[in-house]
Design a protein around this nucleic acid. Structure first.
Length: 469
RNA sequence: CGGGCUGUAGCGCAGUUUGGUUAGCGCGCUGCGUUCGGGACGCAGAGGUCCCCGGUUCAAAUCCGGGCAGCCCGACCA
């Protein structure tokens, strides 16, 4: 087994454990439908935890869940010029249904600004209807040229938020709030992945957006992965779809809209940010299973003791499962390691007679022997330690692989192994061209203190430059 | 669409250069037994349109011609 630097499937370095645990390793064998992906139950359990954590934060930001159609009339796309231009090449279009050719082709949604815009126009009449804060959990389809497991599959699951506001400032503030309080908070505090926050340079923006905010993480091979985006759409979509409201003064005005999303790509990001040669490493706050209680042997007394430990853990709010001791010990241990379960409690007859158990950490492999009565307290403390250590070590890896440079040539050089940081005004259009020619791009623009700027026109911005997935 | 490469059992591969009994190996799978404190072992089994079509030949996974599919690097991108 090799390090999980990439999610390619033909490579000698391909970590085979993805296939066992998380997803079907190669894209699903699905005839001419290329690049679809099968997520196995354990991988999906991780995604469900991501959904749950994100959904809580989305609701805290006031948005409500809703659902909109999978099929979108092709004409909707034509209404926003940049949007149609950006998405046309990757649309899957239905031209035939119900045994006949359709009068108008139907697009399988690649994202839902257009349908949701259509409905927002109906729903918004008055300033009293604003802000309208919607979110949907859905699958979308993008016929990408080169699919990649988890990172760019033809079909993927995500959450897409869509909001309409009465003013530019309010819309911008909301996009920023989602960017920081929903996405960045989740990525850092739950996934334990340090992410650079910032805005996209104009050429990297979402098609139709006036500003795109992004969280960019570094994978173990030094490449960048966009973990989430939040877009200020200005009045572009609102004008195209007629999302208009009457203000307190009686005047009609066009709304300002936002959209924002995070996808199953996050599962790929998790694998590549924390995984090691032994398999997945899932941070405790994200883990569907935080502690596995392993019976070293299938023995009644041992099983009783395991059940007691399990119940005590559950009572303390720890997500635990019992491995009941069928099969060889080594094999079972390895299986739990591959799944990245943060802690395992090993208990056998010898331990039982001494009233102790061994707790092993997945992240660094260290073992401690503790009295049976102390297991819950120790486990809770260790879970906290693991969470902290994962973020700290990922941050250290990222920081040592981020170089400050002064020239485009040095940036390209640094981007071969990590990130480069240089003054945005040093780069300019021509610098960006030079980067793009060698598959390097500006991932985001930040202020000098690392915070997210309002626009690319702010003074003294720095560009984070890297190769990306 | 450019540049590389590959199609043989569920998965990973050898065999193809130099055509030759019944097409092999590892993992996985089924059964029985012994095991079980770090990926166990023995024995017995199941499992194949050798990508497709055509040609050469006594004989084709192997040679020739033509297709098709997939993977990797690039353009596109959550």
């Amino acid at each position: 087994m090799a390090s999980p630097n990439t999610l390619t499937s033909q490579d000698d370095d391909f970590p085979r454990w993805y296939q066992d645990v998380v997803a079907k390793a190669e894209m699903a064998d699905n005839g001419p439908v290329r690049g679809t992906m099968v997520i196995r139950p354990y991988g999906y359990a991780i995604w469900e935890r991501m959904q749950s954590e994100l959904d809580t934060r989305i609701k805290a930001a006031g948005a409500q869940n809703a659902y909109f159609p999978l099929f979108i009339p092709e004409s909707y796309f034509a209404r926003e010029a940049e949007h149609v231009e950006g998405f046309s090449p990757e649309l899957a279009v239905v031209t035939h249904a119900g045994g006949a050719d359709l009068a108008e082709p139907i697009v399988v949604r690649p994202t839902s600004e257009t349908v949701i815009g259509e409905f927002m126009a109906k729903w918004v009449q008055s300033y009293r209807d604003l802000p309208l804060l919607l979110n949907q959990w859905a699958n979308v389809v993008r016929w990408e040229l080169r699919p990649r497991l988890f990172l760019r599959s033809s079909e993927f699951l995500w959450q897409e938020g869509h909001t309409a506001h009465a003013s530019y400032d309010e819309a911008a503030a909301y996009a920023r709030r989602i960017h920081l309080e929903t996405y960045h908070d989740f990525i850092v505090n739950v996934m334990a992945v340090p992410a650079y926050v910032g805005i996209k340079p104009p050429r990297e923006r979402f098609a139709g957006a006036i500003n795109s905010l992004t969280c960019e993480a570094m994978m173990r091979d030094g490449k960048a992965l966009q973990m989430s985006t939040s877009h200020e759409l200005g009045q572009n979509f609102a004008r195209a779809f007629g999302i208009v409201f009457q203000g307190e003064d009686g005047q009609s005005d066009v709304c300002y809209t936002t959209s924002w999303g995070a996808s199953t790509r996050l599962v790929g990001g998790l694998i590549m940010a924390h995984g090691d040669d032994r398999g997945l490493v899932v941070p405790p706050r994200l883990a569907p299973v935080q502690v596995v209680v392993i019976a070293v042997r299938e023995d009644d007394d041992v099983l009783d003791a395991c059940a007691g430990i399990y119940e005590a853990l559950q009572r303390a709010g720890v997500k635990a499962v019992i491995d009941r001791g069928r099969g060889s010990f080594g094999r079972r241990v390895t299986d739990w390691e591959i799944k990245g379960v943060p802690l395992r409690v090993e208990l056998g007859p010898r331990d039982l007679s001494n009233r102790v158990a061994t707790i092993v950490r997945r992240d660094d492999g260290t073992k401690v022997t503790v009295g049976i009565d102390a297991i819950t307290a120790t486990a809770r403390q260790l879970l906290e330690d693991v969470q902290v250590r994962l973020l700290a070590s990922a941050t250290e890896r990222r920081d040592t692989a981020t170089c400050d440079v002064d020239t485009v040539a040095d940036a390209i050089d640094a981007a071969q192994t990590g990130f480069a940081r240089l003054a945005w005004e040093r780069l300019g259009e021509s610098g960006e061209d030079q980067l793009n020619q060698v598959a390097v791009s500006v991932r985001c623009l930040q202020r000098r203190d690392g915070t997210t700027p309002e626009s690319p026109d702010e003074e003294e911005l720095v560009a984070i430059v890297a190769k990306s997935y």
